[in-house]
Nucleic acid binder design. Structure first.
Lengths: 339, 339
DNA sequence: CTGTTAGCGCGTTCAG
DNA sequence: CTGAACGCGCTAACAG
């Protein structure tokens, strides 16, 4: 590693002279500046980021804690985070908790030892289930800004970015009713999560509001170890719905395929809509109509909120330090031919 | 941030006493140790990682440069990298080049300023096309260990991890022939990339070896802006193959769906096999048989190679410093019912 | 114009 | 048993 010290030694000047020269200080003579810059360029000198961090107490790095890096939705959020962070000049260091609370606690420990300037987090399933947020409270006391997204809780006071899950499905039911659908089914594989519950609640409420009744049989909950193909086939045969809303995209696509196997015409006899993203909707034919979750936008927005906080911390651009934002990103039904 | 200094001040002892006490130094009296530890614990003291890094010249962080974070294959590799890095006690900082060479050059700049102990990289499409690896050569001269995976080049001398693309498809053609297939088609959307070319070459060679001839019409190259559904439908109608190998998973799944629309029975009249991963293969019915690319394993292996290098650098565990490994991860055809 | 000094947080001498 | 001094690489305040 090439340092100021080495340059100074070779040029036979002091370290600070080199430092100043490289920053075009008016204190330094033009000739010295040229000499210094020439050598620095020759050796491709870069100031050591670690030393800079130590001095400035800023790392220009954002820490991201994600429950499942393989999940398509989180990938998209991560993508959005990367894009925005890049724009603001921040690096991104990611930790994949794999839904483990222990890992989440550890991650926050790591991040609170000066490695990052701020944290973006979606909590693990385990944390949500145990309903224990002490590690987050502790972390917040250490005054590193934090933004939560998707998997959030009211118990913690900080900026948040979420999807309006309840509304999304509520409106979807309405829209399907307007299309003339009378028996709408709901398929979910994420029953235990809050988002899953919000969606189920939205479905229930909409059923009452638009059809005056709610039939529990029209919700199909598939647990993790069951075969989705089989469960969905049984569900279609038994209930004969004329519309399906799937809380995740996989089941949406599978529903279309199963329907075709059963000679049910999509979308003529059966509308299918699923939460998810456009890319995957291509996998079925007709392509699945999707309720777009704006993963990328959620990532973007999280970074913006975080950068705001960090700036107000460093530069005292006085955002009200005791008031926090909760951004609700609306969903959007798009594309496909299955509705 | 709570530091040794603050603890020392509050305890009215010197900084070094605190430091020693926390590491159970025999130089310090039991009582002092207890007092120190109590307070450290109370304030949840963690040594500042940045300061540690500056001193030790090690960051315990790995830098990862990826061409497309949304690509399923790279997600999986990233997942493998995270798992292994975690095991070895390294953090992971990722940069998404989005196939841009400029971004790749910048990333290496960032990483060579002391931020990371080693780098894992898959090059951008642009870099490969321009065939210009000067930035990598420069980086390597700075003696930070680097491992390349998937998108590699012979021009650079370092450890590498790749898939045996040629063999994978070669063997697949053989296997399909053994199943009695006589007219095998190949669909590719990644023609311009090396991996795409290797696969096409493997297909060509296998056609000659097993069928004594090769018909260029049996390769369907779909460029980025074309509609895959339409292209594949035309291809199936025109060539009437009895087997399809898809160089990416999307076209594999789509092929199955199109075939069903055309009343071609899968796998009875048409075998379909695609490069990809199990999760996505679920999207079709029957499920797609996939040539598994071992993304996670590639990530794992890359980290192992990198850690090896870093250890040999730090601790002089003398690996031969001038000999580099190229790990070829075999593919594996698994699952599905479409073959 | 250039050099010296101090300090960011830490661990490790070395001196008391 | 404890503390002062040093150095990692850098910038900034202060001296010359």
């Amino acid at each position: 590693m090439i340092t100021l010290k080495k340059l100074a030694k070779e040029l036979k000047v002091s370290i600070s002279t080199v430092s100043k020269a490289l920053r075009d200080s008016p204190e330094i003579s033009v000739e010295t500046i040229e000499k210094v810059k020439y050598l620095a360029n020759k050796y491709n000198y870069r100031p050591n980021k670690i030393a800079l961090s130590l001095k400035s107490n800023r790392t220009l790095t954002i820490g991201v804690i994600i429950p499942d890096i393989l999940n398509r939705f989180y990938s998209k959020v991560l993508n959005g985070i990367h894009d925005s962070a890049d724009q603001f000049g921040y690096d991104v260091i990611t930790i994949n908790t794999k839904e483990s609370m222990l890992k989440e606690v550890d991650s926050l420990q790591i991040f609170s030892s000066g490695t990052v300037d701020g944290v973006i987090i979606a909590m693990s399933e385990e944390t949500l289930n145990k309903n224990d947020y002490s590690h987050l409270k502790e972390f917040i006391m250490k005054e590193t800004p934090i933004v939560m997204f998707d998997r959030v809780t009211d118990k913690i006071n900080c900026d948040k970015v979420i999807i309006d899950d309840f509304d999304a499905i509520y409106n979807e039911v309405k829209s399907l009713k307007d299309l003339g659908r009378k028996k709408i089914g709901f398929i979910s594989t994420i029953n235990e999560l809050n988002v899953g519950k919000y969606r189920a609640n939205g479905f229930r409420k909409a059923s009452f509001d638009f059809f005056g009744k709610f039939d529990e049989n029209l919700i199909l909950r598939i647990s993790k170890n069951r075969d989705k193909h089989i469960e969905i086939e049984k569900f279609l045969k038994k209930n004969k719905p004329d519309a399906i809303i799937s809380a995740d995209i996989v089941c949406g696509v599978i529903s279309i395929n199963i329907a075709k196997n059963l000679n049910i015409e999509v979308p003529k006899e059966l509308s299918v809509v699923g939460f998810g993203d456009k890319t995957i909707s291509e996998y079925s034919s007709p392509k699945l109509t999707t309720i777009y979750q704006h993963g990328t936008e959620i990532g973007n927005r999280s970074v913006e909120l975080l950068v705001d906080r960090m700036n107000s911390k460093w530069f005292g651009l006085n955002k009200n330090l005791n008031s926090y934002t909760t951004d609700i990103i609306p969903t959007l039904t798009i594309g496909g031919e299955s509705k």
